[in-house]
Write a protein that binds this DNA or RNA. Sequence first.
DNA 1: TTATTATTGTGTAAGATGTACACATTTAAA
DNA 2: TTTAAATGTGTACATCTTACACAATAATAA
Lengths: 248, 248
Amino acid sequence: MTKRLTTTAFVDHAPHLIKDAVKLVASYPTVPITVDCVIFGFEENELKVLLIRSDLEMYKGFWSLLGDNVKDNEELDSAAYRILKERTGMNDVYLDQVRAFSHPQRHPGGRVITLAYCSLLNIQHHELMIYANELHWHSFSSIKEMAFDHKEILDTCYAWLQKRIQEHPLGFNLLPDKFSLRELQNLYEAILGVSLDRRNFRKKFASMGLLIDVGEMEEDVPHRPGKLYKFNFEKYEKNKRKWIGIDF
Amino acid sequence: MTKRLTTTAFVDHAPHLIKDAVKLVASYPTVPITVDCVIFGFEENELKVLLIRSDLEMYKGFWSLLGDNVKDNEELDSAAYRILKERTGMNDVYLDQVRAFSHPQRHPGGRVITLAYCSLLNIQHHELMIYANELHWHSFSSIKEMAFDHKEILDTCYAWLQKRIQEHPLGFNLLPDKFSLRELQNLYEAILGVSLDRRNFRKKFASMGLLIDVGEMEEDVPHRPGKLYKFNFEKYEKNKRKWIGIDF
DNA sequence: TTATTATTGTGTAAGATGTACACATTTAAA
DNA sequence: TTTAAATGTGTACATCTTACACAATAATAA
């Protein structure tokens, strides 16, 4: 997907030149790098976030993002996917790098730079696979304090999500495969913190042509059941470039 | 501006707990970190980018972004500002973190993670202050190959800029203090790679209310001179939140 | 001095999109 | 059978976007 090292072919790899390069890099200070994942979910009409108890005694009682150090020669994206896989058992989830946090005192154990990643996942899919204790979904709005600078990271990722969801139809990653328009609207209202006109909301999504009517109805609702839809991932992938903004 | 370490006050700083934290961090692999700045300018109706000859013999002849390693306990943002200051003499320039590049083989000297920063600066202001040799403005569109993965970084920052400039009136950072609407339009056309309707373009900017008529006219143009404007930075800063998207 | 050229400055109509708003229909539950 | 609660739909209005043309101005060339 991303182009990599396209210039390598033109470069002289003579051993003494490599040695020079190695020497240069060896002169750089080094820093421990971590990845912290903000994992959003949606349940009971609330935006949730998956947190774990801090593993540091110092932050005993504080909640913390799911993070880990980046291994030797591990790409940041891979580290983020690895953490997700290890902690939730999930493989194919939406994941994006948000930004780096580098305040020298952000970790009490010394200088650590962390890369924040934002991930969206479907709680229904994932619920069964969590194995770790002390891993819990929290209502996003209830979180006031966290370990390290994780509250700042969380807030940054939330702002990122609010913006991102208005540019790309990401919400589907948080919903079951089949969902009603009401559920979809609840999701948008929860994330954006606004209330939307039902008719206009439906009209807008209808006009996007990304919803497939699966011909089924909601069940076990205490009122008239609504139609169920699934998201047209294929069509979205095809027309991605038209959905505002080149991905970078 | 950003909240930092808001939870620290609630945390137990007993020495043995700090020792634990230090021990934990000491167990993490460490990585050399660099910052690479993509510095855009605008001149002669072309988007330009400021590049330097690669300092690695291996990439002799290749152009490279302005980068440096991040010092001990230096914040990434500070490192980026330091590089800008050192290389261009400029202090108050627009600067934003774009993203991290972490391919294990991206640097021939071994594993180096770099943080890409994007910066916009006014070539007129800055021209006199460049002191380094081998530091040149290049037409963005003419750049085909670069050292390391810098072409990929450049392309990423360009895509980022294209998107960003449609959400925030960043273009002003690239123009002289006083500019004509034609110059402003040329800038947008150059960055977005489209041609825009002159009347609609003017109407749009007029309706934003961010332009101040300085009561002067262009000089030395071989045709009817246009009015000069300056950008209303104050008003923009005040209403920033309304300019699409919370900053994150 | 005049004519030519290039560019500025402006307005309007049509289309597209966003917003506000109301009523009949359907199901579950009382 | 009635009631309550939600679904499903359409229309008018306002706002934004797009397409498009002509007179005014200054520099230049004749």
